[in-house]
Design a protein around this nucleic acid. Structure first.
Lengths: 157, 157
DNA sequence: GTAGATGCAAAACCTTTGCATTTTG
DNA sequence: CAAAATGCAAAGGTTTTGCATCTAC
């Protein structure tokens, strides 16, 4: 029984209607372990026989994204996924093996932005940062697979 | 007449065939001003009446991406685009107004990664960082449009 | 009561794939 | 000459849209 109350509060605060479908999606989301895609959520909904349409899932995720409750990330392998945001944490490290993610505070990133402004003359308004690696659990299980990069000829498939 | 030679050299060095289509795509790419999408490149090719297939453009961009000649980025507005990489620069600031981008060195990002490792126990292998803002030119032209966020009700469309 | 939200299915998009043909090294 | 790359069109998967119908406030 996940804690949806914060999500409901966020919806109300922002003036969105607190509808049943949105609450269902919220529950599905907070139950997710690690990152998840819109389709996975949809499958999960069907599995639980929850009545929410495809479009609604997408629309709800969009709203939650805007409210800062989830973040839409782009995986290195070119896919898209969402992760739940932990309050006060603004970026994520996501495990390339199991997909679990952890929020991280703004550890010096603001400083980097300032350095970039100084060097480029750009006025930096926002940034998107995603870190990838192995979570503590997978570090133990993983025998540090490969270190090499794909063979050029093989890589081109 | 753009400088494709470095790109050709990179292809050779990596063992890829230096084909005409790849060279055409390379030219199209370096002629781009700011970021560009695969489709835009395709349109541009047709405009110039260059004979390259859709699939080839995608495949060439994939190769260039692997060679570190371009980077595939994900825009805040949910679109995807590519930017040309300047050697020795590993991240980009892209202008939210005109799309022009500038490469930036690893200004303290490695330190951030280390801090994250210390805090989360993750082993950080790679990261994806994109900075957004206004380029020097647009800073002058732009009367700092809006500062507010979209109205909740309006935002939900 | 009314603006906002939903569901459905179709449409729109972007990207990839199969395969015969051509090109490169 | 063999391996790699291309082009085409068709397939694949994801996200969005139009619209009539509901629902929260």
């Amino acid at each position: 029984m996940p804690d949806i109350s914060a999500w409901i509060a966020a919806l109300e605060r922002a003036g969105y209607f607190v509808t049943l479908p949105r609450q269902l999606v919220a529950e599905l989301v907070v139950d997710q372990d690690g990152h998840f895609t819109a389709s996975e959520l949809l499958l999960d909904a069907r599995r639980r026989r929850l009545k929410v349409g495809r479009a609604t899932v997408f629309r709800a995720l969009e709203v939650f994204d805007q409210l800062g409750l989830v973040e839409r990330i782009d995986l290195p392998d070119r896919g898209h996924a969402y992760v739940v945001c932990q309050p006060a944490h603004h970026h994520h490290v996501v495990c390339t093996r199991c997909g679990r993610s952890s929020g991280v505070a703004d550890l010096g990133i603001a400083a980097v932005a300032r350095a970039v402004e100084a060097e480029t003359g750009f006025e930096v308004d926002s940034h998107r940062i995603e870190l990838y690696g192995l979570c503590p659990v997978c570090r133990l299980e993983a025998p540090r697979t490969t270190g090499g990069r794909p063979t050029p000829l093989a890589a081109a498939r």
